[in-house]
């Protein structure tokens, strides 16, 4: 290390404050630095509380509160129904939140809270954090409990007198809770697809089996307007 680089390192250390002055990291090892540099400041409890909103399947993160189905319906109709429909059936391309039971192993499964979502905590978390769309985080915890209760009711999972609260939250089980496995590509696909491929005369014949022009849904084409009937969803919403 040259003299000038030493001086530069010293300057950086001084600028970084007392912690890094105790343990200046040589520039060469910089990316691997694991010792604290003393940057940033402690997060205040109020700040952590303001942003630490996420709710986990075991109920971690749920605030105190409760809400019933009927109250939830009122709030839902005011804030949610314009996109998701009065009965959570979904309007236009906006997601449906109810229905679809028994469709997961059929063509074009309908994935809703009742048919697909594994955890109720996800509903609470998402509604609380990200809804209503375009005006997020206006709902109080009690209102979120109520909407969540209404969505359970819309999916025929609770009766109309049901009250959801922090205390009974984790007792609710969604139907598809057991419907997920961890990524198994390393076992089911990688061995199959990691074989030296054929280079010559790999098939007897080749026929075209499908044309994109049949659907004609490409934007900018002469008939792109014909794509009004969305042919296939791509999980984008």
């Amino acid at each position: 290390m040259s003299k000038s680089r030493k001086a530069a390192a010293l300057l950086i250390a001084l600028a970084a404050g007392p912690v890094s002055a105790q343990a200046p990291a040589p520039a060469e090892d910089a990316p691997a630095a694991v010792r604290p540099l003393g940057l940033g400041r402690p997060a205040l409890p109020e700040e952590v509380a303001a942003w630490n909103m996420d709710v986990s399947p075991d109920g971690t993160g749920l605030p105190e509160g409760s809400g019933d189905v009927m109250t939830g319906e009122e709030i839902y109709l005011e804030h949610c129904a314009a996109c998701h429909g009065d009965f959570a059936e979904g309007l236009d391309n906006w997601p449906s939140l109810a229905g679809g039971e028994g469709t997961l192993d059929r063509e074009d499964p309908e994935k809703t809270i009742g048919s697909y979502w594994p955890h109720l905590s996800t509903v609470w978390d998402y509604v609380h954090h990200s809804m209503p769309f375009g005006n997020a985080r206006i709902l109080t915890p009690d209102e979120v409990y109520a909407i969540t209760a209404y969505l359970l009711y819309s999916n025929d999972l609770v009766e109309e007198d049901f009250v959801l609260s922090k205390d009974n939250f984790t007792q609710v089980r969604l139907p598809n809770a057991q419907g997920f496995i961890e990524d198994d590509r390393p076992q089911t696909e990688y061995p199959v697809f990691s074989v030296e491929p054929c280079m010559e005369n790999c098939k007897d014949s080749v026929e075209i089996t499908m044309h994109a022009s049949v659907l004609d849904v490409t934007p900018g084409g002469e008939d792109a307007g014909a794509a009004e009937d969305a042919p296939a969803q791509a999980g984008i919403d």
Binding site: L104, P109, K111, F180
Partner: peptide, 30 residues
Amino acid sequence: AGPVESREETSKYTDTLANGISRKWTWVMD
């Protein structure tokens, strides 16, 4: 300690197989 199982890792970005069972945590792009 564990995954939050947020909306984007349960209702979306999961991969439903022919038998109706869905893969989750399919993070890697092959």
